[in-house]
Design a protein around this nucleic acid. Sequence first.
DNA 1: CTTTGACCTGTGAGTAGCTCACAGGTTTTA
DNA 2: TAAAACCTGTGAGCTACTCACAGGTCAAAG
Lengths: 143, 143
Amino acid sequence: MKVKEIAMGAGVNPDTVRFYTREGLLKPTRNPDNNYQQYDAEDLRRLRFARKARQLGFSLPEIRQILEQAEDHHSPCPMVRDVFQQRLAEVEREIAELQQLRNRMTAALSAWQEMPDGTPDGHTICQLIEHWDEAVPETGNKE
Amino acid sequence: MKVKEIAMGAGVNPDTVRFYTREGLLKPTRNPDNNYQQYDAEDLRRLRFARKARQLGFSLPEIRQILEQAEDHHSPCPMVRDVFQQRLAEVEREIAELQQLRNRMTAALSAWQEMPDGTPDGHTICQLIEHWDEAVPETGNKE
DNA sequence: CTTTGACCTGTGAGTAGCTCACAGGTTTTA
DNA sequence: TAAAACCTGTGAGCTACTCACAGGTCAAAG
C-alpha cells in the first residue's frame, strides 16, 4: 500500500500517515525501485489502532509505547487499562469543569440582560466581563 | 509597576505579561533610565480583564479587539455578548461530546473486566482498544 | 513517444497560548 | 563591592496535526 491507500483505508489525511511514520508509529518498508513507502496490512492495523487510541485520549507517545510493547510480544493491555482509567478520571474532571463554566455562563448571560452596554469610560472595559465572578479554580493543566 | 509586579497583581506568570505585551494587549511605557517596561493601573485592569476573558473562552485576538474598541470608546459589550453566546454553545457541545466519551469509556471498562489481557499475536495489538466501537463523530475542530 | 496530471518524496513552517531558556544589562541587598 | 535577583528581547518547545514547497515518478491520453 502506498501512502494515499493506507490513509484512505483508515480514513485519515495522507499527511497524518506521513507524520505517524516520522514519529515511528508506522514502520513501512521501501520500494527499492522508486523509494516509495510500502505499508502492509499490519501497518493498517496499527494505524487504525492508533486512531482509536487517539479518540480515547491516548497521546502519541503512549500509543507508541503500546505499539512497541505489542511488538515485543508483551501484552500492553494492563498498561492500557491503567492509562485508560487515568484518562477517564481526566475526562470526568473536564466535564465537571465545563459544567461549572456553563452554569456560570448562563447565569452571567441572564444577569447581563439587565446590564447596560456601558461605553468604556476609562475605568471600565466591559462590565459584562469585569463583573464576571471568577473563582475558576485551575485551567486544569495536566499533572 | 514592573513586569513581575503586574504579573503578581494579576496572578500570572511574568512571561505571560511579556507575551501579552508582545501581542499588543498591554501597552506599557518605558522608563527612560533603564528601558524597563512600566505598567500602570490601567494595564493591570486590562490584564485582569484579559485573564477573565480567557477563562470565558475568548481568544487573544478577540480580546485584543475588545480592548481596542474600548480604547476607541466604542462599547465592546454587544460584541462580547455575541461571542459569549457562541462560546456558550461551544461549551455545551464540548460537554455533550465528553459525556458521550465518558459513557463509552465506562462501558468499555466494565466490558474489559471480562476480557483477557491477550498477548499480542500478530493479529491483535490490544483487544481492549481494538474492540472499542468508535463512531465518535468529530473531534469538533472549530469551523 | 511524449505530455499531462496525479501521485510520491522529505523538510519546514504554521496553528494557540503560553512557558522556558539564553545571554546580557540593571538594581538591590548584604 | 560583589552576588543575587531582577530586567531586556528573541527564539525555541509543547501537541497533533495540516499544508506548502520543490522536485522525482508513474499511468494513461494524445
